[in-house]
C-alpha cells in the first residue's frame, strides 16, 4: 500500500486527491452486517429462576457485559434480538415463552442459560419442561446450575461466533431465493 502524505481525514475532504485505499475498504456484505449485528445484541432476559439472579451480576458493575456490546437490556420483545432464557421453564410457562419469542423481530437468537432451560436439569418432575427446545429453537446452550457470570458471557461470545458465520438472509426467505 502506498503511503499518502495527507492524513486520512484530509483525503475525505478532497476525494479527487485521495487514493481510494486510504479511505475505504472492501468486504463482503454478510461480514459487515454480521459484524455490526454481533456487536450490538440487545438482550431480552426471560428470567424465571436462579439464573436470572446470576444474570443481574452479568449486567452489573463487576462483570459488565457492555464490554461485549450486549448491555442494552430490553424487556420488550419488539426491541430486542436475543432472548436469554434464564431458569426453569415449567409447562405452565411454555406458551408464554413461545409467545414472547414470536413477538421478537428477525433476526433473533435464543440462548438457553443453565441446565434447567437446556434440559430440565435435575428437575425430572411432573411439571417441569425438559428443555426449552420443546417450544423455541435454541442457538446456544450454557451449562451450569446456575452458570457463573463468566459462563454466561462465554455463551454470548459463542453466539457472536455463530452470528459471524451465519447468513444475513432470514431462514424462512432463503428457500425462495435458492429455490430449495
Amino acid at each position: 500500500m502506498t503511503q499518502d502524505k495527507n492524513p486520512p481525514h484530509a483525503s475525505l475532504i478532497n476525494p479527487e486527491d485521495a487514493d481510494i485505499r486510504n479511505v475505504a475498504f472492501t468486504t463482503r456484505l454478510e461480514d459487515f452486517v454480521n459484524w455490526s449485528r454481533k456487536n450490538s445484541l440487545w438482550p431480552l432476559p426471560f428470567g424465571t429462576a436462579c439464573c436470572a439472579i446470576e444474570y443481574m451480576s452479568v449486567v452489573s458493575s463487576h462483570y459488565d457485559v457492555s464490554r461485549f456490546g450486549a448491555e442494552v437490556v430490553r424487556f420488550s420483545p419488539r426491541q430486542s434480538d436475543c432472548i436469554l432464557v434464564l431458569g426453569t421453564v415449567v409447562e405452565k410457562m411454555g406458551p408464554v415463552l413461545r409467545e414472547i419469542y414470536d413477538q421478537m423481530l428477525e433476526p433473533k437468537w435464543v440462548i438457553a442459560v443453565g441446565v434447567c432451560a437446556s434440559s430440565g436439569g435435575f428437575y425430572r418432575a411432573y411439571h417441569v419442561m425438559q428443555g426449552i427446545d420443546e417450544v423455541v429453537p435454541v442457538d446456544v446452550y450454557v451449562p451450569g446450575c446456575p452458570p457463573t457470570p463468566e459462563g454466561i458471557i462465554y455463551g454470548m461470545m459463542k453466539l457472536q461466533e455463530k452470528i459471524t458465520k451465519g447468513g444475513i438472509v432470514r431462514a424462512r426467505d432463503r428457500h425462495k431465493l435458492t429455490g430449495k
Binding site: T48, A49, G87, T88, V90, K92, Y123, Y126, V128
Partner: peptide, 11 residues
C-alpha cells in the same frame, strides 16, 4: 401463581 412450580416436595 405457579409459573415456577418445580415440584420441590415431590422431588
Amino acid at each position: 401463581i405457579g409459573y415456577l412450580h418445580r415440584c420441590f416436595e415431590k422431588m
